[in-house]
């Protein structure tokens, strides 16, 4: 009889009522990967043949902001799509320079040497530090300035070029 009572007590524990169900929850976080340029015109105004204009624009420079949450290494390159030209007249890239600096919070490597010639081939300007692989939403700010030396025998005219910043991961 004692055994049966003991067994009943055991059964009571074994059959404590419980049930469990579960639900799988999923979410996909979108990829963010883009750059912003704070202006779309760089105007050297009117220059004389032989004149040199430095550090344009004359404020902090052209700000390029890179934002990503992909957590991958990324680099920023600079180039121009064509040399400064007005019809068939050209100011060669050996007279057109870029320089700049990263923001104080940037942790990557700046490749500018001070004054580098513009190039039709994209040149490395900046490679992100590991802490910038996912820098969204603050982003990484990079500042660019430009110098132009008009050749002394340059034909008068309105010379244009397009500077391109290329972000790659």
């Amino acid at each position: 009889m004692k055994k049966i009572i003991l067994l009943l007590l055991v059964m009571g524990v074994v059959f404590a009522a419980t049930d469990t169900g579960s639900l799988s929850v999923m979410v996909n976080v979108k990829s963010i990967f883009y750059l912003e340029v704070d202006r779309h015109v760089l105007d050297f105004k009117t220059m004389n043949p032989g004149q040199t204009m430095r550090d344009m624009p004359d404020n902090e420079g052209v700000k390029v902001s890179v934002k990503t949450n992909n957590a991958n290494a990324w680099v920023l390159k600079i180039s121009n799509l064509a040399e400064l030209s007005d019809g068939s007249a050209v100011i060669p890239n050996k007279n057109f320079y870029w320089s700049g600096y990263p923001s104080r919070t940037a942790s990557g490597k700046w490749y500018g040497k001070g004054t580098d010639n513009m190039s039709l081939t994209p040149l490395m300007a900046y490679s992100a530090g590991a802490s910038e692989y996912n820098n969204y939403p603050d982003g990484t700010d990079l500042f660019f300035k430009f110098d132009l030396k008009v050749p002394s025998r340059q034909k008068s005219g309105l010379y244009r070029s397009i500077v391109a910043f290329t972000l790659t991961e």
């Binding site: 404590a16 419980t18 469990t20 579960s22 639900l23 799988s24 929850v25 949450n69 996912n134």
Partner: peptide
């Protein structure tokens, strides 16, 4: 960071 995330939610009745 971008990517797919998942979790399991459990309901337990006692």
């Amino acid at each position: 960071r971008a990517g797919s995330y998942s979790t399991r939610v459990w309901f337990t009745l006692i």
